[in-house]
Simulated assay, not measured.
Amino acid sequence: MSTEAEPWAPQACTLPTEERPLRVAEFDALFTEAVRSVRRIDVTSVSLELEPHAASRAADLVVRETGCCSFFTFSLVATGGSLHLEIRVPAQHADVLEALAARAEGMSS
């Protein structure tokens, strides 16, 4: 899927079309309320620093997301008093990751 409202949701996504706006809204809320910073590691890896209170919410969301977009690899890493959501994709989905990272940057507090 590739629309103006959802540029990072690729055709490979198996989430039913009617559920996609709800999933996008969940990611938008996480980005707005919990993302402290976005760090691009390389073209296939990004790390989002999250507010620690968002751990269970982020975990629930990314588990559901891998159910429809299995090309994502998400890791929640808690270390040194901080929480990071690391996101990786295969090279052929680098554009999806870039769009997701840009969206997170644009919405983070």
Score class of each variant (00 low, 15 high):
residue 15 L to P: 00
residue 90 P to K: 03
residue 49 E to M: 05
residue 3 T to F: 01
residue 58 A to M: 01
residue 106 G to F: 03
residue 53 H to V: 09
residue 32 T to M: 01
residue 107 M to R: 15
residue 52 P to Q: 08
residue 21 P to T: 08
residue 66 T to P: 00
residue 85 L to G: 03
residue 57 R to M: 02
residue 78 A to K: 13
residue 46 V to Y: 13
residue 92 Q to A: 09
residue 30 L to C: 01
residue 62 V to Q: 05
residue 49 E to C: 04
residue 14 T to S: 14
residue 89 V to M: 01
residue 7 P to G: 05
residue 42 D to I: 07
residue 108 S to E: 09
residue 109 S to D: 09
residue 36 R to M: 05
residue 26 E to S: 05
residue 32 T to A: 15
residue 58 A to Q: 05
residue 54 A to D: 07
residue 24 V to P: 00
residue 72 F to Q: 04
residue 107 M to S: 14
residue 10 P to S: 14
residue 76 L to R: 05
residue 37 S to F: 08
residue 41 I to H: 11
residue 35 V to M: 06
residue 99 A to R: 15
residue 82 S to D: 12
residue 85 L to T: 06
residue 103 R to I: 04
residue 53 H to E: 13
residue 68 C to I: 06
residue 107 M to W: 12
residue 84 H to P: 01
residue 17 T to A: 12
residue 98 E to L: 09
residue 62 V to G: 00
residue 57 R to W: 03
residue 39 R to C: 06
residue 23 R to L: 09
residue 77 V to C: 07
residue 28 D to V: 02
residue 29 A to Q: 13
residue 20 R to G: 00
residue 2 S to D: 13
residue 97 L to C: 04
residue 53 H to F: 09
residue 96 V to M: 12
residue 55 A to T: 08
residue 72 F to N: 08
residue 98 E to A: 15
residue 28 D to G: 01
residue 72 F to I: 02
residue 48 L to H: 10
residue 99 A to P: 06
residue 109 S to K: 14
residue 13 C to N: 15
residue 100 L to S: 10
residue 77 V to G: 04
residue 109 S to C: 10
residue 63 V to W: 05
residue 12 A to V: 06
residue 2 S to K: 12
residue 30 L to Y: 04
residue 27 F to I: 06
residue 103 R to W: 07
residue 98 E to V: 05
residue 95 D to N: 11
residue 58 A to R: 03
residue 76 L to N: 02
residue 53 H to S: 13
residue 98 E to W: 06
residue 104 A to D: 11
residue 109 S to F: 14
residue 108 S to Y: 10
residue 38 V to W: 12
residue 81 G to K: 10
residue 79 T to E: 15
residue 44 T to N: 12
residue 83 L to Q: 03
residue 76 L to A: 02
residue 93 H to N: 09
residue 41 I to Y: 13
residue 33 E to T: 10
residue 15 L to C: 06
residue 50 L to Q: 03
residue 15 L to Q: 12
residue 36 R to N: 10
residue 67 G to L: 08
residue 55 A to R: 15
residue 6 E to R: 15
residue 65 E to H: 04
residue 24 V to I: 14
residue 2 S to C: 05
residue 38 V to E: 09
residue 34 A to S: 15
residue 44 T to A: 13
residue 72 F to T: 04
residue 41 I to R: 14
residue 109 S to L: 11
residue 52 P to S: 09
residue 18 E to M: 02
residue 47 S to W: 10
residue 55 A to S: 10
residue 5 A to T: 09
residue 6 E to Q: 15
residue 54 A to C: 04
residue 106 G to D: 07
